[in-house]
């Protein structure tokens, strides 16, 4: 197993405007992502999951620590941008003035000069994400939320990324769409050889997708390992709490003593 990138001792904090208090968001996070794997990050809202994604993507700079990419793994593929993120409000990445077709074509042109191969790749991408020819000629806001998400995925995959970060891709979807997405992500992982980091607060659906999962609480990794094993025998009390919360079997005093 080749390592794709390594996150080393990342910490991040912000200073509040009001009382100048320093609030720690992430504390000393270290883990690595292997080439070709699907890794999950799970934790409650406000736990620092999205911040972590943004740090890996280089959108925000950590206060401490560093991200080390395996240069061989990344540049052997001649990736221009080895990483793409699918954000929660994915409709916003689609330019409202342009058709889906043009958005994807433009992304493909970055690396491909030949017209015919662009057309072929485009077909392949749209087929893979399930955007039919009629939808390709629409603009982002003319698509439903689920269609926007799939169109955005086509655009992200067009630049042949090594790592795809998915931020809460399952929220606001019905169960059938959730399962379809799981299958789609698995297919992308296989067919496009893209490594996936999937962030979700929902262990229930996450376990259908990921082989390995990190549990984050208050900015710290409290558990990490094979998804099945963690679900079968969680070692940290918070993981146990999460699993019981998903089954709606928590009592009021447990919920209140949490904070």
């Amino acid at each position: 197993m080749t390592e794709l990138l390594r996150i080393e001792n990342i910490s991040y904090s912000v200073q509040q405007n009001k009382d100048k208090m320093v609030v720690s968001i992430l504390k000393n996070i270290s883990f690595s992502i292997n080439e070709g794997e699907i890794l999950g990050v799970c934790g409650e809202s406000g736990g620092g999951k999205t911040t972590l994604a943004k740090i890996i993507a280089g959108i925000i700079t950590p206060v401490e620590g560093k991200i080390v990419w395996n240069q061989n793994a990344v540049f052997s593929q001649s990736s221009i941008n080895p990483l793409q993120i699918l954000f929660q409000n994915n409709g916003e990445i689609l330019n409202p003035f342009r058709r889906i077709n043009d958005i994807v074509t433009e992304a493909l042109r970055i690396k491909n000069k030949d017209k015919n191969s662009i057309i072929q790749l485009k077909e392949k991408l749209f087929d893979a994400v399930g955007i039919n020819p009629e939808l390709r000629n629409r603009k982002g806001y003319e698509l439903s939320g689920g269609e926007q998400q799939r169109a955005a995925l086509a655009r992200l995959l067009a630049v042949n990324p090594k790592l795809l970060i998915l931020d809460e891709p399952f929220s606001a979807q019905d169960v059938e769409s959730q399962l379809n997405l799981v299958n789609l992500f698995k297919k992308m992982n296989k067919d496009f050889k893209v490594t996936i980091l999937c962030i979700s607060h929902d262990l229930n659906i996450l376990r259908k997708l990921v082989n390995r999962v990190l549990i984050i609480k208050d900015g710290e990794i409290i558990e990490c390992g094979k998804t099945e094993e963690i679900l079968k025998s969680p070692s940290h009390p918070y993981t146990k709490f999460l699993l019981r919360a998903e089954n709606y079997s928590l009592a009021l005093d447990e919920l209140h003593s949490k904070k």
Binding site: E44, S45, S171, A172, H201, D202, F241, L242, A245, E246, Y248, L250, L252, L255, K258
Partner: peptide, 17 residues
């Protein structure tokens, strides 16, 4: 209308109770 969208499971448990 969709009381659990945007909240985590712990909060959803509170809503339920």
């Amino acid at each position: 209308d969709e009381p659990t969208s945007g909240i985590d499971y712990a909060a959803a448990n509170l809503v339920l109770l």
